[in-house]
């Protein structure tokens, strides 16, 4: 360990020299690694954003329960309490006739004038039930025996589609992330291996002088770490600009999509890329070194 610290300056200088000798090739490597990280980060961000959006939509999943006309307040409240006690129901609220009318006015906006054609409020009061999407079947079963229910608008088709999207997104996300992660590792270890190959004469000389493998390999490990970390920083820069542009576009044209905050996403991605680039740099270098040693 003492030997390691006394040679730290040498290792850094060697890593710098190795980088300088294959300067152009290393610059291209940084760009390649940066682009790979950028693609990987975009895939992960896209997957994460979709999950966030789906989660928000999941929280909004609801069914509407219409009760028999002329039901007195006591029975309506009893029905409401019964619904609240069902497993999977997160919230249940009574929406009276006036509230129904007001909501429709908000939905119709300028077209709301059409409502003025009615002499009386045409809407029915109903119970709005926010649910846990995975419990929808059980909730519908539990609602069946309850009295005084006239009609249930369960939005089952939409909810089922939403569940399918979540499953597909999860599977595709894991597959793409795994594939991109493995490609990143393979490319990085190949780049490191190439660097070792370019310096094979130096490595052979060191072996003949009796240098241990750790001494020979450490500058290459440092170089690998440097390439991946700089590549990671480059990828982060690209991601930052892409997010800024993307959020601006979505923010102005697709207002209804509930996106998580950009700052949070950028921060998470910065930490993710930094850790990933460091880890892949070390792992890739070890792979490169051990495969070069085998040859």
């Amino acid at each position: 360990m003492k030997n390691f610290f006394s040679n730290l300056g040498y290792f850094l200088k060697e890593a710098k020299t190795i980088f300088r000798i294959d300067f152009l090739s290393n610059i291209f490597s940084i760009f390649s690694i940066g682009l790979i990280f950028f693609i990987l980060s975009m895939v992960i961000s896209g997957w994460w954003l979709s999950k966030e959006v789906v989660e928000v939509l999941q929280k909004e999943a609801e069914i509407n329960i219409y009760f028999e006309e002329g039901l007195d307040n006591i029975r309506v409240n009893n029905l409401l309490e019964n619904i609240k006690s069902i497993k999977g129901v997160r919230e249940a609220n009574l929406v009276d006739k006036e509230e129904s009318y007001k909501r429709m006015e908000e939905i119709l906006e300028k077209e709301a004038r059409i409502l003025e054609l009615f002499d009386e409020n045409p809407f029915q009061p109903f119970i709005e039930v926010k649910i846990d999407i995975s419990e929808v079947d059980g909730i519908l079963e539990d609602l069946e025996p309850l009295e005084n229910i006239d009609y249930i608008r369960d939005n089952k088709d939409i909810i089922d589609k939403l569940e399918k999207i979540i499953t597909i997104l999860t599977i595709v996300g894991i597959l793409v992330i795994t594939a991109t992660g493995i490609s990143t590792l393979v490319v990085i270890s190949h780049i490191i291996r190439q660097g070792i190959y370019n310096n094979r004469d130096q490595i052979n000389t060191l072996k003949l002088l009796g240098a241990p493998d750790s001494f020979i390999g450490f500058p290459f490990l440092l170089e690998g770490l440097f390439l991946t970390v700089v590549g990671g920083i480059l990828a982060f820069g690209l991601i930052f600009f892409t997010f800024r542009l993307g959020y601006k576009q979505i923010g102005t044209s697709l207002l209804f999509i509930p996106l998580p905050s950009m700052e949070g996403l950028v921060k998470a991605m910065a930490i993710f890329i930094l850790i990933l680039s460091g880890a892949l740099g070390i792992i890739g270098s070890f792979f490169g070194l051990s495969s070069a040693k085998g040859n």
Partner: peptide, 30 residues
């Protein structure tokens, strides 16, 4: 064992891009 041997190779095997001093220091680094 090679650390106890001082080899002078036919083709010298000095490391390019480094100074004379750096090459000599390499023999003692480890």
């Amino acid at each position: 064992m090679r650390r106890l041997i001082g080899p002078v190779f036919q083709e010298f095997k000095l490391i390019r891009g480094r100074t004379a001093l750096e090459n000599v220091m390499l023999g003692l680094r480890f």
